[in-house]
Design a protein around this nucleic acid. Structure first.
Lengths: 230, 230
DNA sequence: TCAAAAGTGTTTGTGATACACCCATGG
DNA sequence: CCATGGGTGTATCACAAACACTTTTGA
């Protein structure tokens, strides 16, 4: 039976671990850190921290992301809580994981200079400490699910992007190949992109038109019952 | 920066709250309890408890469900963690929610005798304490998602059930009406049900054939790449 | 002039949806 | 004999998938 007071209940450490995704050169990437403290010093780990008494989990995740990237307003979602009794060999710790989406190209320039932090292609990611590999796996599962029913993929791209970039981003996350014409037709049918009078000349001689995601239009469509579905 | 030792970090109370779903007389139901301790004594609440030092979250949820229903092996899934600083007015508490699926008819007979515990039709559920209403909402969203891509609905039904019961269960969870023939055709195409030589005579003069879900066949199909999708 | 990426519509197939009548039986 | 729920098949539609050629231009 639950006691009439809470004070006899056990308290635990609550950690937040972030699975930070990026997209660059047609590859889905993940940001990990070499731990500079025990236990497991020198091994690769997700970026994390502990929940403070006066903040909620979202705030903690935002704080950790800000500390690492310098960015505010990063798109993130809670994924799952991990609680195996001996998951952290040092002390009983429960961890709540978040995934985050970052536009590598435009923001995190200084980031890579810091020594112990590194972007890996998801495919080449080294083994991580504790249950962090499982956290990554679960986060990818959620991310795959999410990008098919919510237009969050744009968080990984610069504000202006080409259709090819958009498609390659979906392909990288879903780990599949998509038909160029079907993909464009589908996206055009949503009527959520604004074609700009600008071209990206970096990847071809002809140049590729740049597009912007129209957030306002999306919100308006949502209210009218629109349902994003790739 | 994360410190070189954990011992200066804040510890918190970690609760587990269960959204217990049942299905009876064509209605989706939820089990709640009248709190017999402060704060919020006398108000309706989800069934919960605190995580102990030596158990993981799944074990805690199982323990809470066992205490309440006497049942082991209840189907459940973690939903989300709730961490607003003042969500519990008495003391900082983070809560991890689980949904659980119970076959009301065959099991929880003694349950209803206990005074402060009650099944409500989801539609008629009273307002709950703290952020428990939000927890219920999130759990339903997950449940709706889950029954469309995994055959978990059977957990709400007796071992033997009629096609009508199965359909009404889906209708109750999805809060929609389904076409009888399309529903049966779809389910038959999966080839996951075993038709028994028994009829349920309780709801009509003609009687309706009973079916069983074939778990082994489902597992075999899964390995062959089958994907359940309603 | 050629290599490399950009851009563009139509056909086909599959799965979702809509739909109506006969059957069996207890009262 | 009739009221009630049980059981069954087909036609249509909409969306997903497959598919190939022309354009542009820098090297």
């Amino acid at each position: 039976m639950v006691l009439n007071t809470y004070c006899k209940e056990d308290k635990v450490l609550l950690a937040v671990d972030c699975i930070i995704f990026g997209f660059y050169q047609e590859e889905l990437k993940i940001l990990v850190v070499k731990r500079d403290f025990e236990p497991a010093m020198g091994e690769w780990s997700l970026i994390g921290g502990f929940l403070k008494q006066k903040e909620n989990l979202n705030d903690a995740a935002s704080r950790i992301l800000k500390r690492l990237t310098g960015l505010n307003n990063i798109y993130m979602e809670q994924v799952h809580s991990y609680s195996k009794v001996d998951r952290d060999p040092k002390e009983r710790t429960i961890s709540v994981s978040y995934f985050a989406l970052i536009d590598i190209a435009h923001h995190c320039k200084d980031l890579l200079k810091e020594n112990p932090i590194k972007w890996f292609n998801l495919k080449d990611m080294p083994s991580l400490i504790f249950d962090h590999n499982k956290m990554v796996k679960d986060a990818i599962t959620l991310l795959r699910n999410r990008i098919t029913n919510k237009p969050v993929g744009f968080e990984l791209l610069p504000e202006k992007f080409t259709m090819r970039q958009l498609q390659k981003m979906y392909e990288a996350i879903l780990d599949t190949e998509l038909d160029k014409r079907n993909f464009i037709n589908k996206f055009n049918s949503f009527d959520l992109l604004r074609k700009l009078n600008e071209k990206d000349m970096s990847s071809s001689k002809k140049g590729a038109f740049l597009f912007k995601f129209d957030e306002d239009k999306y919100q308006k469509k949502l209210e009218e019952g629109f349902c994003f579905k790739i």
